[in-house]
Nucleic acid binder design. Structure first.
Lengths: 346, 346
DNA sequence: TTGTATGCGTTATCAT
DNA sequence: ATGATAACGCATACAA
């Protein structure tokens, strides 16, 4: 009678105390086999109400916690998603990830997050170690990856979603917007408002540079004047924005519009302008990018380009889960677009 | 001779093509057993130079990627760390996590990151699903957790590190600073500078409120005047900073010092003050918290309290890894302190 | 230095 | 509705 339902024998007690409770333990207490416990958790309909109740009681009693490591090995589905972003301290990306993660969690997946620091080599290194976790899917930022990285991803045979950029030929699925079109749109707006001189203050990452070049080309074409440029290797900060205006003035910029690769830089420029008694937008205009949460509340409020990041994160998660679960996906390349929001700084 | 070293037979080719390469496959090609491949990867010293080379060639040939899921199950060490923060979009925490993750990665661990949103219930729910991944250690933000959460953690029997706060009785190890002492120090500073009226603009999370209360008590004690308070349920933003000053003025605040629970709120107050023609620090002073990257570059530069977040993240990672690997830890409770940095806003 | 046997805690495939 | 059995891919103990 030692293994009768409801009984808790010596061995069972030892397992509970040592924290080594498994489905086997739960089953022994509930008077069923380990397999039935597995079914009770994964597909309760297949188990009778009576035994289901007994199993639930046993789980309660033992404090059983499922072991997804074992589950992943057996099912060959890890329920893990790897997510690679250039920087987790940059709100542009963490904002996106916040929504991505929340949707992903709702579908029962966990997220392994890592930084790639704007470098393809680092991305490849990170992808390499991530794949050893056998993720069911992976999110990458951007559409440019090393060939070694692509090869590994193809070899892994898992869905890949590339975000924050767009291309006709994604590795698998991409969702984002055209940085070139965004840059061009900013130039058209600037020229359309009558500004015929421009200063560009930009961070040095590849996507920012693509926007910058598109802006410069379009602006030059429309006005006949090539913008002055101030570039930073590193990421955008308010400090670099302040320095950027200083450098721009030293390089001879006197009036017109200042195109920034980020609202953070733009905010820094507003501050530096204020410190110097330069009036925005009377003396010069400022155009940001990203529409961060503070951008409507600067002095003056910032004209900028909005990307709906929460929506982007959500849709990326939904698309990735759909791909993993073999649901049909209408499109391999999803353009979420952007919107130029005019405020007082221009 | 079909399994002679260097040979690649039919079955092996099939495995390579189907992406189901294991140590077994590699070993077959290299002419050794699966165990030797395992050793070659985990402890190369134990394998002769010759076979090591053959194994490396076979790995190269097959594109073998280790399966840490299987490794975790067999060794009962997942090499996974769960990290729970209130918000990943808040730079205060993402800054900390950035350094935490980098150190953790260097030790061969991966990080499962999740948000808990300032709620103990959500924290418990997240902990629950995280534990099913059998992490080797876990990082929590703060020292207050639901009893269910504590029970689960104890039951899991893994090292826990609590950051961004401090207590004499951590669950396991904690590293952070005293929010009460920080609030008191801010009050002493304010009173010492001669301010005898105060407005508090604070976010509503538990730690911010502890600083607020400590400040209010100490300030009242020193000056005889209780501060006016403006509280927000949600997190700190520049927008709420601007609204906070507005509300403070409506509540009758006219002059003195404004104590903020975050530099973001303080920045918003500087902006609103500028919009209203209020001179900082002549008409009223502003005191922030956090020393964010922009804080030296606001107008005027922000007086604030600095916590060395990168250092905190690094030390948290080091302490957690030490605990996991059973290395001695000098202290269960590590106070990293804080520093009041005086700038132009006071 | 290398190999054999075994088990990690599940899921999947058959039976019953 | 439930159970027996065999993977899953690796690490560990023990042998040789």
């Amino acid at each position: 009678m030692s293994s009768a339902p409801g009984k808790t024998d010596q061995a069972t007690l030892a397992e509970i105390k040592s924290g080594t409770v498994t489905m086997e333990t739960v089953g022994r207490i509930a008077g069923v086999s380990q397999v039935t416990v597995s079914r009770a958790l994964n597909d309760p309909k297949k188990v009778s109400a009576k035994t289901l109740q007994r199993i639930q009681d046993a789980i309660e009693l033992t404090g059983y916690v499922p072991n997804m490591v074992a589950g992943a090995l057996a099912s060959r589905r890890s329920k893990l998603i790897a997510a690679l972003v250039p920087s987790i301290t940059n709100v542009i990306y963490s904002d996106l990830m916040q929504n991505f993660i929340n949707v992903i969690r709702g579908s029962g997946y966990h997220v392994l997050m890592a930084e790639t620091g704007f470098s393809q080599d680092e991305e490849q290194a990170v992808v390499s170690t991530m794949l050893s976790r056998r993720p069911d899917g992976i999110l990458l930022t951007g559409i440019h990856h090393s060939s070694g990285c692509k090869k590994m991803l193809l070899g892994a045979g898992i869905p890949v979603i590339e975000v924050w950029d767009i291309t006709e030929n994604p590795l698998d699925v991409c969702i984002g917007f055209s940085h070139i079109r965004a840059g061009e749109e900013m130039a058209r707006y600037a020229a359309g408002k009558g500004y015929d001189k421009a200063l560009i203050v930009s961070a040095g990452d590849e996507r920012a540079l693509r926007r910058k070049n598109a802006f410069a080309n379009q602006f030059t074409q429309l006005t006949g004047n090539a913008p002055i440029e101030v570039l930073y290797e590193a990421g955008a900060t308010i400090e670099r924005g302040r320095n950027g205006l200083r450098s721009g003035l030293e390089k001879g910029f006197q009036s017109g519009i200042i195109m920034c690769s980020s609202d953070l830089l733009a905010h820094g420029i507003l501050i530096e302008a204020q410190a110097r008694g330069i009036k925005i937008p009377e003396d010069m205009a400022v155009l940001g990018f990203g529409n961060q949460d503070f951008s409507p509340f600067t002095l003056p409020a910032l004209t900028t380009v909005e990307i709906n990041r929460p929506d982007l994160g959500r849709r990326a998660a939904e698309a990735l889960v759909a791909r993993i679960e073999n649901q049909p996906l209408p499109d391999k390349s999803i353009d979420v677009g952007f919107e130029l929001i005019e405020r007082a700084s221009t």
